[in-house]
């Protein structure tokens, strides 16, 4: 593989949130929870200290997936549901880069659900932030895999009647190495959780409750119902799973910090293809 210089951190020049703020105007509705997530991510990146050109933010499609262009980092805004494979290929090809994946609950749990399972299982050293608003925002308000069974919408009048699943429990069962929940409007604590997720080796998953003010205005009430940092991280997967399933689903904080070794990056160095070609030769 191409040899790239080791990342250099420049301690003299402290980075600030501004260094990660791009000039592109977000398309988000004013009051959308995703603004908080963007700010928290920018804060976390500043704190982590890697310059923007050593960071890549990858996403799929959705309101939340618009985020990469709003940072000054390198970015990839791909197709719906496929952000995690893109991030996986990127990180394996270039382990020197900091790779952050972002998206929505539809993108990550519905169309991209299979990739979510396998990203947890594979445990490549990337961070995955899901802005869960329990709705498909971009397509104007259809229920997602985390939407309550009785939530009424045009696409499912009276509700889907289907129980939502717990992304955190799934992540734990599938092998994620770091599992946390945050709240979009608690920018500072969320930034701290994201920074820790990025630092933690392997696949780190941060589910962020991020209200959709337009299609789920009632989610603004989350400000009141959130149970802030009501959990302490454990290194025991069983215990973490019990906490996730037992706790109020509004509980924020870090549930699990595992010790799985991250999926190894590719062996570097270039062999001589002509040596391999010699294996085809007969009759010399």
């Amino acid at each position: 593989m191409t040899i790239h210089e080791a990342p250099h951190v420049c301690p003299q020049q402290a980075l600030t949130l501004k260094d990660f703020k791009s000039s592109v105007e977000p398309i988000w509705c004013s009051g959308c929870g995703d603004f908080g997530v963007l700010q928290a991510l920018q804060r976390a990146l500043a704190e982590l200290g890697r310059p923007p050109h050593e960071v890549v933010v990858v996403s799929g499609i959705g309101c939340s997936s618009r985020l990469p262009a709003y940072t000054t980092a390198y970015g990839f805004h791909g197709v719906h549901g496929r952000a995690l494979p893109v991030a996986t290929g990127l990180k394996l090809a270039r382990p020197d880069l900091e790779v952050i994946t972002v998206g929505g609950d539809g993108d990550g749990y519905s169309i991209g659900g299979n990739h979510f399972l396998h990203a947890c299982r594979r445990n490549v050293d990337i961070t995955y932030i899901v802005m869960d608003n329990r709705v498909y925002g971009m397509t104007k308000g259809q229920p997602s895999p985390t939407t309550e069974a009785d939530w009424d919408s045009d696409a499912a009048p009276g509700g889907t009647g289907v129980k939502p699943f717990s992304p955190l429990a799934i992540a734990l069962a599938a092998g994620a190495n770091f599992v946390a929940r945050g709240f979009a409007l608690d920018v500072k604590p969320l930034a701290a959780v994201i920074a820790e997720a990025v630092r933690h080796p392997g696949f780190s998953f941060v589910e962020v409750l991020s209200p959709c003010i337009t299609f789920r205005p009632e989610e603004m009430e989350w400000k009141k119902t959130i149970e802030r940092n009501a959990v302490t991280a454990t290194t025991d997967r069983t215990e973490a799973t019990a906490k996730v399933l037992g706790a109020n689903e509004m509980t924020t904080g870090i549930f699990f910090k595992g010790d799985r070794g991250a999926y190894a990056s590719a062996p570097t160095g270039h062999g001589d293809a002509e040596k391999i070609a010699e294996k085809f030769v007969v009759g010399a």
Binding site: V58, P85, A87, G89, L92, H118
Partner: peptide, 16 residues
């Protein structure tokens, strides 16, 4: 196969 080609997108973007 979808994951496979998207992984290639990531690697291609990364310069490989």
């Amino acid at each position: 196969e979808i994951a496979a080609i998207n992984m290639c997108c990531g690697a291609a973007y990364a310069g490989v």
